[in-house]
Amino acid sequence: MRQAEAPPSGKWTGPAHAGVKAPEPIVLPDPARRFAATAQRLEQLAEGHPMAAWLRFLGRLARAQHEAATTLAPGAALDPAAIAQAIDARIPPLAADGHRRDASWREGLARLLERIDRDALPDAALQVIEQLQRSDAAAQDRLADRFLRGGLAADDAGAAIYVAAALQVYFTCAAARLQAEDLRLLEERGLCPCCGSPPVAGVVTAGGTTPGMRYLHCSLCSTAWNHVRAVCITCGGTRHLALQAIDGDAGLVKAETCGECHTYAKLLYQIHDMQADPHADDLASFGLDILVAEAGFARHAQNPLLLL
């Protein structure tokens, strides 16, 4: 693993012209594209990958998420007054640990379990799916609550990956129904302004009107929000940041480590691949997580699909 000599500059230093504008603070997700893009990217990354079978499974799961996200009827209408009150109080309007979920999330779970390709799944995985399909609404809601509040038991891991996938669909579709101009960044900038969840990774842009900006991508509702570079997203420190990467790789994925709080977060650099997807490329770069953990750094927050 190699280490950068110094953290990158926190501001864009490219050419200054009329086409470079201030970055949008919040970018809401597009459910019609989010999961399809992740599925396509996972299928691409699986080719020749040492964890190819696992990535292909996650690609099939993302395809099932796409079908659920694009075929389900919209959930119950969001309460505008409650949303406005939360935003004024600097509270995420879809706070993952407090939002009253509509029953449509379970419909999404059912649709996902029906649509996932089971041909290559082992017997143990098939049994988990069948048990989930037989479970009642109360049991599914309890499992969702434990996932969202960090109370999962080891025995929950098999079922939790499907519950997490269904909750990603539900919260992504809910976030897409908000208005970005009404939202505000949270005081704790490392958390999603829509649902309060941590990011799965950050993307440093290379195109459009805001090249060189870092956008964090929510692990739950897929919202992206601007976060200044060269600042630790966990503690806000700036003095002991470094970029870690695997020797000989293309430089697409790096880990920004903080020597103050000993955490790290992934960064994807679009300049190396404009097709990079924060959800897929994070999963495919698990080897970097292992190396950074061995160096004594804890991940800022876990990818929900890495529960297994």
Rank of each mutant, 00 (worst) to 15 (best):
G208L: 10
P122E: 08
C192I: 07
P93G: 09
A37G: 14
S197Q: 06
P93D: 09
D88E: 12
G14Y: 14
P198N: 06
I83V: 11
L143W: 06
I233D: 01
E67T: 05
A69N: 04
Y162G: 00
A110E: 10
R239I: 02
G190C: 00
A139G: 09
D141I: 13
L178Y: 04
L185W: 08
L45A: 04
G14A: 15
A224M: 09
P122W: 11
A53N: 08
D289S: 08
A84Y: 02
E107H: 14
D156T: 02
H227R: 05
G212D: 13
A52L: 01
H272Y: 12
P25D: 14
C194K: 11
L267E: 11
Q85D: 12
A165R: 01
E47C: 11
T205G: 11
A120C: 02
A96Y: 06
L288Q: 03
F147Q: 00
L183Y: 04
L288F: 04
A174D: 12
L78I: 11
L152Q: 00
V20H: 02
W225S: 05
P92N: 03
K21G: 04
L308H: 13
C221V: 10
I246E: 08
G207H: 10
M51E: 10
L291T: 09
S104V: 12
D249I: 01
F297P: 04
T210N: 14
